[in-house]
Amino acid sequence: MIEISNLSKRYGNFDALKDINLTISKGTVFGFVGPNGAGKSTTMSILATLVLPSSGTARVGGYEVTEYPKEVRKKIGYMPDFFGVYDQLKTIEYLHFYGASYNIPRSEREKLIPQLLDLVNLSDKSDSYVDSLSRGMKQRLCLARCLVHDPEVLILDEPASGLDPRARIEMREILKELKLMGKTIIISSHILPELAEMVDEIGVIEHGVMVAQGKVSDIQNRLRVKKILHIRTMERQEELTAFLRDEAFVSGVLSDNTGVHVHFSGGEEEQASLLQQMISLGYPVLSFNEAQTNLEDVFLEITKGGLGQ
């Protein structure tokens, strides 16, 4: 659905994007991760036909964004990181305006807009002026606006920024529904744990360079992000701690009254082998489990700041 090839964007002497390559298949929810100024918004703006790339190509639904911008605009729903609203319009008029701007006939809009308002939980605000809505409501209204022409791709730049925890949860629930509807979604966020629940793939970008891309679990494995193994034994905990300290792929061991915590950099095979050894040596293992690493750990591991220096 989205293909980006050797995409670069230069502002004067500053490289905002350097040879980005990215492929996102239909129905995928893609999380775009990176620190501020890394190039997420620039990439999204290029996909939204708002910024011209310096070199490279970007295709949405098979259409190159600089050659067929009108066709691309039909396929995308774009929500910028910062946006304003027309304060003097009512919520329903706001959606009618954008619906009409996408050439949707009024008869269709009459049926569609109540459904959209229902989806974003704003049905009771249809006759309210947009300026009277809270930030969270405006954010949801903007999401409804993105959906007014039923686009195949949603480009959401920091859709949860500035929202309180409740509003963030509401936004997340709506995005989950959109995922179920089969939309291809590119979403950037600095609230990584919230993304982790719903993204299929992530792309990590730093200083305009795509550092890693793929499934979260694949990236974790590929990067050998240190796992923390939590082991509980019925007895001989001190002895087990000493044994683990000498094992390969173990960078640290901590023993406390909850069990033994092992910093482990091996893969799944090494992890299974370690457990096998412990059992063969007769340690009475009660539990052996991996503390889950989240997207934030991945992000921090990848973007150590070494790039671009």
């Binding site: 050797n6 230069r10 036909t49 708002l50 910024v51 011209l52 790339p53 310096s54 070199s55 490279g56 190509t57 190159e64 964004v65 600089t66 050659e67 067929y68 911008p69 009108k70």
Partner: peptide, 24 residues
């Protein structure tokens, strides 16, 4: 900033854009 290219340019689709093609 991004406008449709002229027909003869669409024919050669795979051409990588140069910065001088700033307005299409």
């Amino acid at each position: 900033p991004v406008r449709r290219r002229k027909k003869h340019k669409i024919m050669s689709q795979e051409k990588i854009m140069e910065p001088s093609d700033n307005i299409i």
